[in-house]
Design a protein around this nucleic acid. Structure first.
Lengths: 152, 152
DNA sequence: GACGGTATGTCAGAATGCTGACATGAGTCA
DNA sequence: TGACTCATGTCAGCATTCTGACATACCGTC
């Protein structure tokens, strides 16, 4: 079923393979995050805030590759549940710097470990050199794709 | 804004980079497909059918990395609009083999060209050797991620 | 100071995809 | 044959994300 004559291009397309890999990674992350009651975007937001405290809603959205509207509803939920705090007024401009609460930090700990184990598993069977090579390749693809845009 | 001291891990994570690349690719594809009135999943379904005629709904779903329920509503729309045909009865089992209509094939032509140009742009700046290397790396990641699953 | 451009936060509605559930058909094994 | 398992197509409800829109705040030039 997997290798028919008619299907030549798809199995040779780096774009298709990229989608496949991303989908597999997402599925694997969902599996380990589900027992923790956390979605991938949920985790992404917390991890971003842990590594870069004070990010605004829009910055978080860009970091998690969703729209700022999507991140906004997520942030409101996280704030309501006490994982995140934002000041009532913006210190400058309109951007509200978000920070993890102790509870948010605690909740993130297990998730980080779980996600890290997934990444370790993903990279098992690859040498350091292969990993750096893959890193450079993906970086190159991202830049090439973005450069073609209307200067976003 | 892009390179703070606090943000070390994320910029070094292959998982994060994989997500970024996949997101960039999806955005680029959406941009070129939008003028054709086609979504990415829409295109994926048609391309799969062009390369492997007679795929069933479930097989298409797996190929496009969505659930069979999602693919079902898409297939119904494509069938209603005359891009795809399915027999009224299953020749064997319950699987209904889908096929492109001439209209579907015609509609796919421009989309294929557009998507191919995106992939070409993505791979510009990479040598053949780098591309094969990236291919092997991504394949390895997919296999490693799937092996850890419950034997799906 | 006035103005245009850009970035942000937020609300509302629509689109998209997923989970849960059910019925059906085929294969396996006792 | 009958029971069990598995894959499939499909319906319904829910969750997530997106697009569109608006008000506000900064920053540049005039």
């Amino acid at each position: 079923m997997s290798q028919k004559d008619a299907g030549v291009d798809l199995d040779a397309s780096l774009g298709y393979l990229l989608k496949e890999a991303s989908s597999a990674l997402r599925t694997a992350m969902e599996e380990v995050l589900r027992p923790l009651g956390m979605s991938v975007t949920h985790y992404s937001c917390l991890e971003l805030l842990a590594q870069r405290p004070g990010l605004s809603n829009s910055e978080l959205a860009r970091g998690a590759f969703v729209t700022r509207q999507t991140m906004n509803v997520l942030l409101q939920a996280l704030e309501r549940d006490g994982y995140v705090t934002r000041p009532a007024e913006a210190p400058v401009g309109k951007a509200l710097p978000a920070r993890l609460t102790p509870r948010g930090r605690r909740s993130l700990e297990k998730a980080t470990a779980a996600v890290r184990s997934v990444e370790v598993r993903m990279l098992s069977g690859m040498t350091e050199a292969e990993q750096s090579s893959a890193f450079r390749s993906l970086r190159s693809m991202v830049r090439a794709l973005r450069d073609g845009d209307d200067g976003r």
